[in-house]
Design a protein around this nucleic acid. Structure first.
Ligand SMILES: [Zn+2]
Ligand SMILES: [Zn+2]
Ligand SMILES: [Zn+2]
Ligand SMILES: [Zn+2]
Lengths: 165, 165
DNA sequence: TCATGTATGTTATATCGTAACAAGTCAAGG
DNA sequence: CCTTGACTTGTTACGATATAACATACATGA
């Protein structure tokens, strides 16, 4: 596993998270540069906000933070920035929560599985190509062409599982 | 494959769909009876509406149909019936579409994967236990306890893929 | 400089979902 | 038969999520 491939377990463990955040922001800058797209102030700030924790955040929660920082106060401000991040693989949409989370492995082709703790709302992203292979196999069997696949697992993170019992 | 285990490919193919619908309605009646829950008129009608096609339907679309049939006109009427069906495994929630689809294999323990055609909105449900095993394995690796997993693949069904080119 | 594409911001509205309460149904026990 | 309690259906009202449409600003290169 390369150095910049984070261990998904870290999302549920105590760790120097500002380190995660800085590493990923740097990577986001470089990726945007390389692709010729602009990581503008709102977009960058939006990513920073998502990176403040391993939780998923709703668009309105992000918006509130952006507004405090002097950006616009209306929903499209947040949705546009979030859509940009999602489109460029810098964030993911967590559909079960109607929320967004920073991607923890931007730039790497990954078929993410999201593990969502129903108690503390933290989200871990694990990269599992074999899973995608299985989905493609099932799709082939019925002649379906998969363009994107989304896997979300709901349950309890280690800490919250301990706490329940 | 047992006779009552439908081929997921059928969702995307021409077939006698009223046959699907009747078979599943019968099964739903029996399952409800066996579990001591009541498949009341609204609930049954809601399932019938979902079963009219292999598409997913939004709650408000279902509500409109229920209202035409003399049931209540307010959102909770539809949401309650749909929640009942989902809770008892007679329907599934398709999160990517904010919509609901009848379960095509009610009563069987299944770890469904949904194949959603982005062109014609039809949904096929495929049952793939190995997939769940993969998810559980990835979860184990980080100490996460999976309670429910949701897999949704977006793409093109065979017919729509042909039509695109 | 000026045309062009892109980004940001606003108003307004669409779409999806739920809380809270009232009224009706139904079966079990007195 | 009548009460009681669990459940079901219906309503009003509201909350939460998301987008359309348009105006303004800003970059970038002819
Ligand atoms: Zn971290
Ligand atoms: Zn947790
Ligand atoms: Zn059918
Ligand atoms: Zn199709």
């Amino acid at each position: 596993m390369p150095a910049d491939q984070p261990n998904p377990a870290v999302a549920f463990a105590k760790h120097d998270h500002s380190d995660c955040a800085h590493r990923i922001l740097d990577r986001a800058e470089k990726l945007s540069e390389a692709r010729g797209v602009r990581l503008t102030p709102v977009r960058r700030r939006t990513l920073e906000i998502l990176l403040e924790s391993h939780r998923a955040m709703g668009a309105y929660e992000v918006l509130e933070r952006l507004a405090q920082d002097g950006f616009g106060h209306q929903p499209p401000v947040a949705y546009r920035a979030l859509d940009f991040l999602v489109e460029h693989g810098l964030a993911h949409r967590i559909r079960r929560l109607n929320a967004f989370a920073a991607c923890m492995a931007p730039g790497q082709t990954h078929n993410p599985v999201f593990f969502i703790c129903r108690a503390c709302q933290s989200v871990a992203e694990s990269s599992t190509p074999e899973l995608r292979d299985r989905i493609d196999a099932a799709a082939d069997a019925i002649g379906f062409e998969v363009e994107r696949a989304n896997v979300e697992a709901l349950g309890l993170c280690p800490a919250c599982a301990d706490r329940e019992e």
